[in-house]
Amino acid sequence: MDVSHEQATVLVNQVQRSHRLLAGFYQRILPSLDDISANFGAHFWYWSPIAFDRPCMGSTKPSRKWGWDYLPLVASQFLYVRSDTTDPVFIELRLHTDPAILPGQRSPKGEPAPANLPDAEPALRIYLYWLVPGSSVDIKSEWEEVEHPGGEADSVSRLSENLWGTWMDIPLANHIVAPQETIARISKHISLPTSVS
């Protein structure tokens, strides 16, 4: 494909603005995820991309990887845990800035072509987990053994002998405008710890 100098200049300037916009977006959204979990006494555990790989190591030729691998936050999970109380909880926040690229939404073959993806509403998918009353197992270990909660949003599922869970989707624009609404929705299922051990 031939590109004129003028077209190339427009393209690289758009890329530059896009990177700056993304950096500003992440500077705003990432602390809001920490704030959600802090309201429930949960602490950061780890994060990872959910639709693609992390960017490659320095010794890997970048052109051998998918371009999407260089956008790890486009679909990513952030895990927070409150395990030092008598009321442990696990909060999994999934940032779906482009749901069209999620597995199950895109073709399972080959790298998704950005120009061919349909529009999809960005969302914050939230999975919540808590122990069955009277259970004393480690919530992280229990979480690692179960599938995500199913059923309708906000319905409670018994995921194992010791673990309950639910899920919900919050339109990402709604969360940005009113994060307190996200916290209120979560608080229907989990609350601040009642005591600290």
Results as ranks from 00 to 15, higher is better:
residue 136 S to K: 15
residue 144 E to G: 08
residue 174 N to G: 03
residue 111 E to R: 02
residue 144 E to I: 08
residue 120 A to T: 09
residue 94 R to Q: 15
residue 51 A to D: 01
residue 116 N to H: 04
residue 138 D to R: 04
residue 131 L to N: 06
residue 142 E to H: 03
residue 106 R to E: 03
residue 144 E to D: 12
residue 69 D to H: 01
residue 127 Y to A: 15
residue 69 D to F: 00
residue 117 L to H: 07
residue 141 S to F: 10
residue 173 A to N: 15
residue 55 P to Q: 08
residue 99 P to T: 04
residue 115 A to D: 14
residue 141 S to K: 09
residue 162 N to L: 12
residue 113 A to G: 05
residue 113 A to I: 13
residue 77 Q to R: 14
residue 147 E to C: 12
residue 153 A to W: 06
residue 76 S to D: 04
residue 171 P to E: 02
residue 123 A to I: 11
residue 62 P to M: 03
residue 50 I to T: 08
residue 147 E to Q: 14
residue 102 L to M: 11
residue 52 F to A: 13
residue 149 P to A: 07
residue 149 P to R: 06
residue 128 L to R: 04
residue 52 F to S: 14
residue 166 T to F: 11
residue 56 C to G: 15
residue 161 E to P: 06
residue 44 F to W: 02
residue 116 N to L: 10
residue 172 L to H: 10
residue 162 N to I: 09
residue 173 A to T: 15
residue 108 P to S: 10
residue 109 K to L: 11
residue 105 Q to T: 08
residue 143 W to P: 01
residue 166 T to S: 13
residue 85 T to H: 01
residue 71 L to D: 08
residue 78 F to E: 01
residue 49 P to L: 07
residue 138 D to M: 09
residue 111 E to N: 07
residue 110 G to C: 04
residue 80 Y to N: 06
residue 96 H to Y: 12
residue 65 K to S: 11
residue 65 K to D: 09
residue 135 S to P: 01
residue 73 L to T: 07
residue 100 A to H: 09
residue 171 P to C: 01
residue 149 P to M: 05
residue 92 E to I: 10
residue 144 E to K: 12
residue 100 A to N: 03
residue 51 A to Y: 00
residue 43 H to W: 11
residue 70 Y to G: 08
residue 139 I to F: 04
residue 41 G to E: 05
residue 68 W to M: 00
residue 114 P to E: 09
residue 119 D to W: 14
residue 75 A to V: 00
residue 135 S to N: 06
residue 134 G to V: 07
residue 61 K to G: 13
residue 44 F to S: 01
residue 127 Y to R: 15
residue 93 L to H: 07
residue 154 D to R: 07
residue 56 C to F: 14
residue 125 R to A: 08
residue 98 D to T: 12
residue 119 D to P: 09
residue 158 R to H: 00
residue 67 G to F: 14
residue 165 G to W: 03
residue 122 P to W: 11
residue 55 P to I: 04
residue 131 L to C: 04
residue 108 P to L: 04
residue 98 D to G: 12
residue 125 R to H: 13
residue 127 Y to D: 15
residue 66 W to H: 06
residue 124 L to A: 02
residue 62 P to I: 07
residue 68 W to L: 01
residue 146 V to C: 08
residue 42 A to M: 10
residue 150 G to P: 03
residue 57 M to V: 15
residue 133 P to L: 05
residue 167 W to R: 12
residue 156 V to R: 10
residue 62 P to A: 08
residue 87 D to C: 11
residue 42 A to F: 06
residue 66 W to N: 06
residue 96 H to A: 05
residue 112 P to W: 04
residue 163 L to N: 02
residue 72 P to S: 10
residue 110 G to R: 08
residue 69 D to K: 02
residue 115 A to E: 14
residue 91 I to H: 13
residue 101 I to S: 00
residue 70 Y to I: 04
residue 109 K to G: 04
residue 72 P to Q: 10
residue 149 P to T: 09
residue 104 G to K: 00
residue 175 H to N: 00
residue 44 F to R: 06
residue 118 P to W: 03
residue 169 D to G: 05
residue 124 L to E: 05
residue 73 L to I: 11
residue 168 M to I: 03
residue 80 Y to S: 03
residue 146 V to S: 08
residue 103 P to R: 15
residue 147 E to F: 11
residue 138 D to I: 01
residue 173 A to V: 15
residue 95 L to D: 00
residue 114 P to R: 01
residue 71 L to A: 13
residue 112 P to R: 02
residue 85 T to P: 03
residue 112 P to N: 02
residue 132 V to Q: 12
residue 137 V to N: 12
residue 166 T to E: 10
